[in-house]
């Protein structure tokens, strides 16, 4: 068969379309979680109000800045590979991964502090504090946990992209895999952009 326009090889537009559809499924996944959040928030608005005051706004803000900056470096790495600057692209990918790791380390300390205070799902101390707090912290662990897993996945993905860039498998002609990884990374950022106010700011 000749290389017609309907050959499936090297169809970058098609890969990107498929990637966006995968992102839609991610959006729907988080939509379900936000559905739970908004339902329980409307049920326990007072308790959610007071519980959110206990989260460390500083860590939340820092993590927001870290993730936003990692999105910038991600976009810059694709920009660099497009104009054939391999070293620059690698540097920016490396920075993205590092920011991702910083985010997770912060998260680790934040969770650790809460767990030390006896606040985690099914903890007797948490259950004593009442239904609203149990729901708030249940959702907190659930949403930030699932988001954290996505950050972790993104880190692995971009690390693989770094290896592929190093091997010149990703280059200025063929960079759709890096671009798709970037789309995924930005989406994880978008989700955090909502998680941040929802848990740390709305009082």
């Amino acid at each position: 068969m000749k290389e017609g326009h309907n050959s499936h090889k090297h169809d970058f537009e098609g890969s990107k379309l498929g990637m966006w559809m995968f992102l839609f499924t991610e959006l729907l996944l988080f939509a379900g979680l936000f559905l739970l959040y908004s339902a329980f928030r409307s049920k326990y608005s007072q308790e959610f109000h007071s519980a959110s005051a206990e989260l460390d706004r500083m860590i939340g803000t820092v993590n927001t800045l870290v993730l936003l900056t990692s999105s910038l470096t991600m976009a810059l790495s694709i920009n660099a590979i497009k104009s054939g600057r391999k070293q620059a692209s690698l540097l920016f990918q490396c920075l993205t991964v590092s920011f991702g790791l910083v985010f997770l380390v912060n998260k680790y300390f934040e969770w650790g502090a809460k767990i030390n205070h006896g606040i985690y799902p099914n903890a007797p101390e948490l259950l004593q504090r009442g239904k609203g707090d149990t729901m708030y912290y249940g959702l907190y662990y659930l949403l930030t946990g699932i988001h954290g897993l996505h950050v972790f996945g993104g880190i692995i993905l971009i690390t693989i992209m770094m290896i592929l860039t190093l091997k010149n498998s990703i280059n200025r002609e063929d960079y759709v895999r890096l671009e798709n990884s970037g789309l995924y990374w930005h989406l994880v950022d978008v989700v955090w952009v909502y998680l941040f106010p929802v848990f740390y700011l709305i009082r």
Partner: peptide, 17 residues
């Protein structure tokens, strides 16, 4: 807060993505 978050999300979607 949600409105500002939506503006931020739109910026990421429109330009970064």
């Amino acid at each position: 807060s949600v409105l500002i978050a939506s503006v931020k999300a739109s910026l990421i979607l429109l330009f970064f993505m």
